[in-house]
């Protein structure tokens, strides 16, 4: 039996495990970061932690839906639509939050707390618009979800590269190189997710590559957070 057949045979079992694993990794990251935020009250730390909390909830919602589908509830329209809006909203937020955490210092310089909060609230409004627009334009749903994310992540990629280059010149040994690699993988992962609908009919195993890539991204961030927050 080749890998494609094996994957297709065990897909109903593999996908919920994958979703739960990613959700748990994200949850551990967000809890570790929350501990630092409680002490420091640093907004950048808060945004970073919230990004992974949204990831955790989004993947958990998908996990629940994969279970519902397993038991044959996939034809219930209300469940499907509610799930789609909720998931698209939640999955749009982490990219916005991560990139905002990278530019926060410049964006929020000389801003009052209210203005800063309004800027963050606007990210939620954009995510909600993306999620609801997908409902009204179902044929464009994929483009509406992924194109803004790819643009935002491309910008985040550029900033993380600049951060990495800056510390490379200072010869500091830190996680910024891995962070940049994680951002490259994140961007690639979203690009693959975007292309999944077009590629999968020709390459049935393509979703497995996307899932393994996604898992890789979360393992890198998990490793980084554990490493940096450990005392010794």
């Amino acid at each position: 039996m080749d890998l494609t057949q094996l994957y297709l045979q065990y897909q109903p079992l593999f996908i919920p495990i994958y979703l739960l694993l990613v959700s748990m990794l994200s949850l551990v990251i967000s809890l570790k970061v929350k501990k630092l935020y409680d002490l420091s009250l640093h907004r950048g730390i808060k945004l970073f932690g919230l990004a992974f909390l949204f990831f955790s909830i989004a993947f958990f919602v998908q996990f629940i839906f994969s279970i519902l589908m397993y038991f044959g509830y996939e034809n219930n329209l209300t469940i499907r639509l509610t799930g789609m809006i909720f998931f698209n909203y939640l999955i749009s937020l982490p990219g916005f939050y991560i990139v905002y955490s990278l530019v926060r210092k410049e964006v929020e310089e000389n801003c009052t707390k209210t203005v800063s909060n309004l800027k963050v609230a606007s990210l939620h409004i954009i995510a909600l618009i993306i999620a609801i627009a997908g409902l009204f334009f179902p044929t464009l749903s994929n483009h509406l979800l992924f194109i803004p994310q790819l643009l935002v992540l491309a910008y985040g990629l550029l900033i993380s590269y600049q951060n990495y280059q800056a510390t490379r010149q200072e010869r500091k040994n830190n996680f910024l190189q891995m962070y940049f690699i994680a951002m490259v993988l994140w961007f690639t992962g979203y690009l693959f997710n975007y292309l999944q609908g077009f590629v999968t009919p020709y390459l049935l195993i393509f979703p497995l590559y996307v899932q393994l890539l996604t898992l890789g991204i979360f393992i890198i961030f998990f490793y980084g957070v554990i490493k940096v927050t450990s005392h010794n």
Binding site: V33, L36, L39, S40, H42, G44, I45, L47, F48, S101, L102, R104, I159, S160, N163, T167, K172, N174, F175, L176, Y179, G224, V228, T229
Partner: peptide
Amino acid sequence: IIGFIENFGL
């Protein structure tokens, strides 16, 4: 905390 801020470019 400082290490985290530096390592994650925050």
